[in-house]
Nucleic acid binder design. Structure first.
Lengths: 335, 335
DNA sequence: CTGTTAGCGCGTTCAC
DNA sequence: GTGAACGCGCTAACAG
């Protein structure tokens, strides 16, 4: 059996109440007794039991993280950001996967409830109204990361996909491109699909470039949908000088197929990606990409949840800045 | 306040003991009372308090995961594998980062102790003897993943780096290469450094190829050390036809610099990687690589720890098979 | 088959 | 400044 405050109390000839006070820096005790207690505690190698603590305080000092269990490349950074802040603030983090289509989400939320987590960070999972209600029923602060919801009063942290897609497209236009493809996007995705399509369209429109549906290839944000898109462009002999891949994976798929057909990026085809994952800088050529600050999202999301736990204040939604990271995959046609 | 078994007991006109029995399928109760209790529980939206449960059972149904917080690409998969099994077996998983050089490890272990985790999975962190002792003092099953230790009786799961490096080198030799570089390896790394160097050397030796230290470029397994290595080969005009990068990142760094100097992979230079991370298949050309089965490591590691928790048996170390995944970055000089 | 009782380890009154 | 007593929510032991 482990050593408890009872043991310390017995050996130090004090009551458990005093031990508890000392151990929690609660004040109201003699410095001598404090020293005595600390000595005994150290000698015995005392470790407090967080479960007992959680029970009596009806809170656990745990932040729950729920994320999809598709092995997408950037969750690691988000989790790193979250864990870092949690640790800094004295919280532990417990993770649960929500399944491929969020099918395990309800279970995850219930699990978090049973563990009495003090706050919740939900990553990239789209929530239905019922699911939002479920989360709300826990009555703990939570935030959505890199996703949002049509429901009111649900705080989220993400970049503005519409603006980001607009910027990416505008950048290509600024470099003299007029026939610009959009590839790999899932048109029913309310969060990462529709806004990017709309941003792309608007940028074209604002620059007087007609929209051509032949230039838009749907997909699922994956490397393979990038390959398919490019093969489709080639097969259909679609005339274009640049492609906006809706993810870095898509962009790499495009580059790969282009390469197979003897097309040099960026000389024969310019490509821009989205996410700025680690593969972007390792791509050949290094990929110009829209940066989503994953680490910062995790950091900020966790930070804001912990603040809400401690202050009981409502969490505001937050749009965080994306960045256009220019590398070498886009050619300037104007020079 | 949340609803507890007391509430259920009161409303259903039974004792808390009976409620507990029903809720835990402990048997020994009337089907009618069971139904009554279940009905009340559902109506009230009862969720059990795992903290209280953990307290009385002196175990938490939590698996602790400790890993370095460098954002290396494959931890995601390991964690996915772990979480998947944990969930399947009714465990939760709590994660803690051990810091860059494992400097936060002691703290992580203590945290796990306070949370009364039932088992521990330690990923890629090298442990000193004192640290092993600390972990052992928790008296819970644990396993090391993708790393090992010189200490006795410490179970680990990893591939055999020596054999894997031997295979990679042999593969290059089988394809007619004789001047083979080794790049990006950290020669003081007991786990991933020395064995790979030795495996490389032995393969050369077994094939009667003299070892040439000019062909070996040290580094830290990163993309940048791959770049540096290749620049170094070029600067020193080292004659070679193939390079074994000790990680996929290193291999990509090599390819990148080769490309910058107009060298085509694999026509002018063959490259083989290690890890078979997601970037390998997305590389241009697709990278031939040694596959470390990360997901399976997580799966197996978690599974074995949970078994040990339940059976009290000792955990055996395990070498799991690597695989040579052939893609298109190595040229056969013999045809 | 069910209820009573005790206690897990801890924090927190309320006395003294 | 310190201790006794209680209760957090739950399971386990023993009665009945």
């Amino acid at each position: 059996m482990n050593v408890t405050i009872k043991d310390i109390a017995r050996i130090a000839n004090v009551s458990t109440a005093t031990v508890s006070r000392v151990l929690n820096d609660a004040g109201g005790y003699n410095q001598e007794t404090k020293k005595k207690i600390m000595d005994v505690a150290n000698e015995l190698g005392y470790r407090r039991n967080e479960n007992a603590r959680s029970l009596v305080q009806n809170s656990s000092n745990i932040i729950g993280v729920i994320m999809p269990n598709v092995a997408t490349i950037f969750y690691g950074d988000i989790v790193n950001g979250i864990e870092n802040v949690a640790h800094e603030k004295g919280y532990s983090v417990i993770i649960s996967h929500a399944g491929v289509n969020g099918d395990r989400l309800v279970e995850s939320v219930k699990l978090m409830a049973e563990r009495k987590v003090d706050g919740l960070v939900i990553v990239t999972v789209e929530l239905s109204k019922e699911q939002i209600d479920l989360v709300n029923s826990l009555r703990i602060p939570f935030v959505l990361l890199s996703t949002d919801t049509p429901e009111k009063d649900v705080p989220y942290i993400k970049v503005n996909d519409y603006d980001a897609a607009y910027s990416a497209t505008q950048y290509l236009i600024d470099n003299g491109h007029k026939r610009i493809g959009l590839a790999g996007v899932y048109p029913k995705d309310r969060v990462a699909g529709i806004p990017r399509i709309e941003g792309y369209k608007k940028a074209l429109e604002d620059n007087g470039i007609p929209y051509d549906s032949n230039l838009v290839k749907f997909g699922d944000f994956s490397y393979y949908s990038g390959k398919e898109a490019m093969e489709s462009y080639l097969r259909e002999k679609v005339e274009l000088s640049a492609v906006f891949g809706v993810s870095d994976d898509v962009a790499l798929g495009i580059i790969s197929v282009a390469y197979d057909h003897g097309l040099i990026v960026p000389d024969d085809l310019s490509v821009i990606g989205y996410d700025n994952t680690r593969v972007a800088e390792m791509s050949i050529p290094p990929l110009t990409s829209i940066s989503q600050p994953f680490w910062e999202m995790g950091d900020e999301g966790c930070r804001i949840v912990i603040e809400a736990i401690q202050s009981k204040k409502k969490i505001p939604s937050k749009i965080i800045p994306y960045q256009l990271v220019v590398r070498k995959s886009v050619k300037n046609l104007l020079i």
